[in-house]
């Protein structure tokens, strides 16, 4: 564990909490892509199946459980409790165009051709593009509530901080994982346009 990794995890946790609080406090999930949230639930489920097979640390296990619970909690709020506020007319990104290539790619490019490893690889690929329905929704409606922007900023920062973590680990521990690094860079690049708007609007806006 290094400071970049810790900050990345905190940022990830913060994003999930911001989203849950936003939905809970406003009793509405307007402006949030249910499709992205479903993809994230698939990502966490596929990746954290190793909860049953390998123990790394209490921190690791607890965080995994928190991410899973928060993700399914968000889906419950969006699709059941506050269903009426779900803006499905604007949430039209075809997620099969993301899922199928990720399935194929994880079967072709992985560290080991075993079920759990392929699921882990699939989750890494899918996570890198899972935000696209949300970004598509924001661009379609032309605006995002500021709280939604904070959510996106925290979520994007998490993988950007992980890149620093991977650079650190490469030099400090000679540890690297090509699949995670490349997918993480792709993921971060997808946020760049949003980061630019968030920062310039934050500084020069209002």
């Amino acid at each position: 564990m290094n400071v970049f990794r810790l900050l990345g995890d905190i940022s990830h946790l913060l994003a999930i909490i911001i989203l849950l609080l936003k939905i809970w406090k406003t009793r509405s999930c307007a402006g949030i892509s249910g499709r992205s949230q479903v993809l994230f639930a698939v990502v966490y489920t596929a990746r954290y199946l190793d909860l049953f097979t390998s123990y790394i640390s209490a921190y690791n296990s607890i965080m995994k459980l928190v991410f899973l619970a928060a993700s399914y909690g968000t889906i419950y709020l969006m699709f059941i409790k506050f269903k009426a506020s779900y803006d499905h007319n604007h949430d039209t990104f075809r997620i099969e165009f993301l899922i199928l290539p990720c399935v194929l790619l994880s079967l072709l490019i992985n560290h080991e051709f075993s079920p759990l490893e392929i699921l882990w690889t699939f989750s890494i690929y899918l996570e890198s593009v899972a935000i696209l329905p949300q970004l598509f929704m924001v661009s379609k409606t032309g605006e995002a509530e500021s709280i939604t922007s904070h959510y996106l900023f925290a979520l994007g920062s998490y993988r950007a901080l992980y890149i620093l973590n991977w650079i650190y680990r490469y030099y400090a521990e000679s540890h690297y994982d090509v699949i995670a690094i490349v997918a993480g860079i792709v993921q971060t690049v997808l946020y760049c346009d949003f980061f630019y708007l968030y920062i310039t609007k934050g500084i020069y806006g209002q």
């Binding site: 990794r5 995890d9 990830h12 990746r47 190793d50 390998s54 790394i56 690791n60 965080m63 995994k64 991410f67 560290h111 080991e112 075993s114 490893e117 882990w120 992980y162 973590n165 994982d177 090509v178 995670a180």
Partner: peptide, 10 residues
């Protein structure tokens, strides 16, 4: 490709 090892990140 390097062999699979435990994924210790989240």
């Amino acid at each position: 490709d390097e062999p699979a090892e435990e994924h210790d990140e989240l």
